[in-house]
């Protein structure tokens, strides 16, 4: 359709309409609008309705009142929210520092074999969560006995427990598996940022008598602060949405034991589709998704107006 327009504009001698701009932009904009933006807006709208005869009935904020007011819903919501925050903090405090440390070591200019290490570190990130989940389930399984045997070899065999099955340790274990898998992404971003630090700046610091350790802390780290901010917000967003896959694989839709690994993703899935005895509810599903939308919006807002703006002042 747009193509024929472009032909006709060439034939007329008026100021040509720049159809090609439309041709370049329309396909991406249409697919993105129909399959990404519209569903999100429509979900926000659906959260204001509930099931009635032959379709939805407008109920205003009643679904939200239910979600936060009725103990049955509120307990699940806050439990999932709390678990997500634990997940987020653990990724920030364990995954991202490990990624930064490994990236710093990899970016040592004289290091041999950096490309090989990089490939190896990124490998787990490439794997499907289903694969990762099952691998670790096997390794941690008391049945197969790889970890008990390994711990015996280290002389700490008596500390072995079926961590994934215990309420007290399931969430932490799941998080550590997730860290094992995804450390590659912040690693790559940090590594690229560190490579981008200008050689002259490092050289100048070296002439000033700083050693490698202090050059990292005083010169490189301040320069890559924007990347730290970016990794922070990506961790925040990913933890609320992407964490579903691993937990569903490892612990099932009920995020057991006893909901101890339940996150917003699994909660949304159960609410929308139902699970076992619970019936699925489109409108409550939309409400949970919308609540999650606002949680993410708050985080992104804080990042854009707080963190990023402050960081850019140091950015030369």
């Amino acid at each position: 359709m747009a193509n024929t327009g472009s032909v006709s504009s060439e034939q007329t001698h008026r100021r040509p309409v720049r159809w090609y701009i439309l041709v370049f932009l329309a396909p991406a904009t249409l697919i993105y609008t129909i399959f990404a933006i519209y569903p999100i807006i429509e979900s926000l709208r659906l959260s204001l309705y509930e099931a009635g005869d032959g379709g939805g009935v407008f109920v205003g904020l009643a679904n939200y009142a239910r979600l936060f007011g009725e103990p049955l819903w509120a307990d699940q919501f806050w439990n999932a929210f709390k678990n997500n925050i634990v997940l987020f903090l653990m990724h920030m405090l364990i995954q991202n520092p490990i990624a930064l440390a490994l990236a710093a070591l990899l970016s040592v200019p004289t290091l041999k074999g950096a490309a090989t290490y990089r490939t190896i570190f990124f490998l787990p990130t490439l794997l499907s969560v289903v694969v990762v989940g099952f691998i670790w389930q096997l390794i941690l399984s008391p049945l197969w006995g790889v970890s008990p045997a390994f711990m015996n070899w280290l002389g700490i065999g008596s500390f072995f427990k079926p961590w994934l099955g215990l309420e007290s340790s399931a969430l932490i274990t799941v998080t550590l598996i997730s860290i094992w898998q995804y450390v590659g992404i912040p690693l790559m971003l940090f590594y690229a940022a560190l490579l981008n630090v200008p050689e002259e700046t490092i050289e100048a610091a070296r002439i000033d008598g700083l050693n490698g350790w202090w050059i990292f802390w005083k010169v490189k780290l301040p320069l890559i602060l924007p990347t730290l901010g970016l990794v922070g917000i990506l961790t925040y967003i990913g933890n609320f949405t992407a964490s579903f896959d691993l937990i569903y694989t490892l612990q099932g839709g009920l995020a057991g034991p006893d909901y101890s690994t339940d996150v917003m993703g699994t909660f949304l899935f159960r609410t929308f589709f139902g699970f076992q005895a619970q019936l699925g509810d489109v409108y409550m599903g939309a409400t949970v998704a919308s609540a999650l939308f606002f949680i993410i919006l708050i985080g992104v807002g804080l990042y854009l107006f707080g963190v990023q703006r402050r960081l850019q002042r140091y950015d030369s």
Partner: peptide, 8 residues
Amino acid sequence: PIRLGTVA
């Protein structure tokens, strides 16, 4: 994330 629009 596009997953937020899953219901619709």
